[in-house]
């Protein structure tokens, strides 16, 4: 085991990107990461704001047209190996925003996230359950470490 994988195993960093939507999933994810009850830091997973030190990109919300370029830039600036997790109904399949103008096609929603960047894991729910996030992230750690 090299120094890189040794140290990565002890500090997985997730980065949360908000791309439109109602912020419910962001609140839920940040609560799952930081709150004492669920406490994701006990599994050596930490929250970061810097894409260059992130390992897992967590995307919430349908990707709006305004947010598409920043999301691609963030995705490209994360060093390999990286995982992308789409969290919440909006990120997974557009949610309530996909048909925001009814039958009229909308140019504002570029999502779901699948259309913009490759997604490794999808967490359904509106808002996502903390239990699902935790078990999803912890289950994806071996995938990330073996990459």
């Amino acid at each position: 085991m090299g120094i890189k994988s040794f140290s990565r195993k002890r500090a997985i960093h997730i980065m949360l990107v908000y791309t439109g939507g109602c912020n419910g999933c962001d609140i839920e994810i940040v609560n799952a990461v930081l709150s004492p009850k669920y406490d994701i830091e006990q599994y050596n997973v930490f929250l970061t704001w810097n894409p260059r030190e992130a390992d897992i990109l967590v995307v919430t919300g349908p990707v709006t047209r305004f947010n598409e370029d920043p999301l691609i830039k963030i995705y490209e600036s994360i060093p390999d190996p990286k995982l992308v997790v789409a969290a919440g109904a909006c990120a997974v399949m557009g949610g309530v925003y996909k048909n925001i103008h009814g039958d009229i096609p909308s140019e504002e929603i570029m999502g779901p996230v699948d259309n913009v960047i490759p997604v490794d894991a999808k967490i359904p729910g509106c808002a996502v359950r903390p239990k699902d996030i935790l078990s999803g992230v912890v289950a994806s750690l071996p995938v990330l470490l073996d990459k």
Binding site: P36, K37, Y38, Y43, K131, L134, S135, A139
Partner: peptide, 16 residues
């Protein structure tokens, strides 16, 4: 301690 130990064990054993 307020951490949910039942949930922690379930997650680490992949039982969720």
């Amino acid at each position: 301690r307020v951490t949910d130990m039942e949930l922690r064990n379930a997650i680490l054993n992949g039982e969720v």
